[in-house]
């Protein structure tokens, strides 16, 4: 079960990572990297700061959510949980189908405000409440364990970061229409999967 949760978190991260890549990251990462000089190591350092900021946001979020779930054991019944899962997945499908921008956090505005602070930019970007992130929260609410919740979000972070690393160095590649479409299709499929899980959970 523990391993399954970790793989699921990683997979969810992979599915939302596509959207992070095509909608948010191209705005932020070249901007961060543009702040540094052209040498390789300083660029890596800045990028690592940005990632660390994101990781801190993810872990903090997991800790808060799991604290809520532990302090109120019956906070959510299974039914409410499944309804939330259905709502989250429907939102995810709708956003993917109608190509609605995932940038809830007004990232371009934030990135301007946090110019020169990649750690802060990463932290704020990590708190982006997009639909896959909401699904992860619902999953974590069910765990009632702070360690498991933090690990879930850690692997969610790793899943999304896989996309961000090449983007940082080859953002032109991921600007292609093919990757955008792949991101959309994957988001729809993952949304449908969680929708089915929610429906069968209610049945």
């Amino acid at each position: 079960m523990f391993t399954q949760n970790i793989i699921e978190a990683f997979w969810l991260g992979l599915s939302m990572g596509g959207f992070c890549t095509v909608s948010c990251a191209p705005f932020v990462i070249p901007y961060i990297l543009a702040d540094s000089n052209s040498k390789f190591l300083p660029r890596i350092f800045i990028f690592c700061q940005f990632l660390f900021g994101r990781l801190a946001a993810y872990i903090l979020f997991a800790a808060v959510v799991s604290f809520i779930s532990i302090s109120s054991e019956d906070f959510l019944t299974m039914k409410v949980n499944n309804i939330l899962l259905i709502a989250g997945s429907l939102l995810m499908i709708t956003f993917a189908l109608f190509k609605i921008d995932f940038r809830f956090c007004q990232i371009s505005g934030w990135s301007k405000a946090t110019r020169g602070f990649p750690l802060l930019t990463g932290f704020l970007l990590g708190l982006n409440l997009c639909p896959p992130f909401l699904i992860a929260i619902i999953k974590v609410l069910n765990m009632h364990s702070m360690l498991n919740s933090c690990l879930y979000f850690l692997f969610l972070f790793i899943g999304t970061t896989i996309y961000l690393i090449p983007v940082a160095f080859a953002s032109a590649l991921f600007k292609s229409e093919f990757f955008k479409r792949m991101g959309t299709y994957l988001a729809i499929l993952v949304g449908i999967w969680f929708l089915i899980q929610g429906i069968t959970g209610l049945l």
Partner: peptide, 18 residues
Amino acid sequence: REFQFALLIFLIAISFIY
């Protein structure tokens, strides 16, 4: 047709998870 690539990736990953 590119949808099939996404479906294949999805099925491989989700089948492995479960």
